[in-house]
Simulated scan of single mutants.
Amino acid sequence: GYYIGGNIPESEPESSRFWEQECVKKMGHGATDNVYFPNGFDQAPVRKNLVELIAQRNAADPENTYVISTVE
């Protein structure tokens, strides 16, 4: 779905389990090394702390790189 990133938990251990299930386990199954992880939709509020959540994930998982980007 296109809202999966809208459900990122903010506390442990839920956060690590979420990233493992929704992102890490999907690595290696696509045509590129990237995992597309959409965030948000037209009927949900903006996730104002998304930058902080991505920074926390990068600190918790140094083997991978998490970035905010666009499809392009």
Rank of each mutant, 00 (worst) to 15 (best):
W19C: 09
N39E: 11
P62S: 04
V35M: 09
Q21H: 11
L50S: 03
S15R: 15
N39Y: 08
P38H: 12
S16C: 02
R57Y: 01
E14L: 08
V24H: 11
G40H: 13
P13G: 12
A59L: 08
N34A: 10
V67I: 15
R47Q: 13
N64S: 08
N49G: 02
F37G: 04
E10C: 07
R17Q: 09
V24N: 12
E10G: 10
T65C: 03
A31V: 10
L53K: 15
Y36N: 14
P45L: 06
M27D: 05
G5F: 05
C23Y: 11
K48P: 01
E72V: 09
E10Q: 14
Y3L: 10
R47Y: 01
T65G: 02
P13N: 08
Y2L: 05
K26H: 13
D42V: 12
E63T: 06
E63D: 14
P9Y: 05
V51C: 01
I8F: 03
V35P: 09
Y3N: 12
S69T: 10
N34R: 13
Y36G: 05
R57K: 11
A60N: 09
G5T: 09
I4K: 15
K48R: 13
E52P: 00
V71K: 11
W19Y: 15
A60H: 07
G6T: 09
Q56K: 15
N34W: 03
T32V: 05
Y2E: 11
D33A: 11
P45C: 03
T65F: 01
E63W: 00
T65S: 02
A44H: 12
L50V: 07
G6M: 00
A59G: 01
R57E: 04
R17L: 06
E52I: 07
V67T: 14
K25G: 02
E12Y: 02
Q43K: 06
K48F: 05
G6R: 06
K48M: 04
E22R: 15
S11L: 03
K48V: 10
Y66R: 00
R57L: 02
D33C: 07
V46G: 00
M27Q: 13
A44E: 14
E12H: 11
F18V: 03
Y66A: 04
N7C: 01
G40R: 14
A59T: 12
Q43S: 08
V46C: 04
W19G: 04
G28D: 06
P45G: 10
E22Q: 15
D33M: 03
